[in-house]
């Protein structure tokens, strides 16, 4: 009985420490970058002054013409090595930063999601790899907007 109780206490302690470990990650959210209203601001927030180089090693799949701006499929992959961040921005959205992916060492840099694009805009992907920043961008035409009514 005693051992069981001790085990429970240990389990409870482990759970508590696991839960406590989570907010630290959540704090890492780049709140200022997400509320930035311009791409430049968002990028300065995310990368400091890091220079951004255009790269053909990033594959950015997004439709040229999005019939429904509320649901635009996006796929981002790259052959760059030591990737630790992928950023997705839609220039003309009210807050351009759409998503930040913190890529762990075992994640193959290949992520897909869907985003809202309010009106025709440049969409860009920035990949941070080996301490450098790389970018690729695409123009997306939107026939029906994804933000507002």
């Amino acid at each position: 009985m005693k051992t069981l109780q001790r085990r429970r206490v240990l389990q409870a302690l482990l759970t508590v420490s696991a839960v406590m470990a989570l907010p630290i990650r959540a704090l890492a959210r780049a709140t200022d970058a997400f509320s930035s209203k311009s791409v430049d601001n968002a990028l300065t927030n995310l990368l400091g002054g890091l220079a951004i180089e255009e790269s053909e090693q990033i594959k950015f799949k997004i439709p040229d013409i999005a019939e429904n701006g509320a649901v635009v499929p996006v796929r981002i992959s790259t052959t760059l090595e030591d990737v630790d961040r992928i950023y997705l921005l839609i220039d003309k959205n009210p807050t351009p930063l759409s998503a930040v992916f913190e890529i762990g060492p075992r994640i193959m840099p290949d992520v897909s999601t869907r985003v809202k694009i309010g009106k025709s805009s440049v969409a860009r992907v920035i990949v941070r790899a080996g301490g450098k920043a790389y970018m690729t961008s695409k123009e997306v035409k939107v026939t029906i907007g994804g933000c507002g009514g």
């Binding site: 649901v71 930040v100 913190e102 762990g104 999601t113 869907r114 809202k116 694009i117």
Partner: peptide, 18 residues
């Protein structure tokens, strides 16, 4: 293995693949 931070411009009922 991965943490994603999203803004409100990710679509409703998000799809996420990796």
């Amino acid at each position: 293995v991965m943490t994603a931070h999203w803004g409100p411009s990710v679509s409703k009922d998000p799809y996420f693949a990796f």
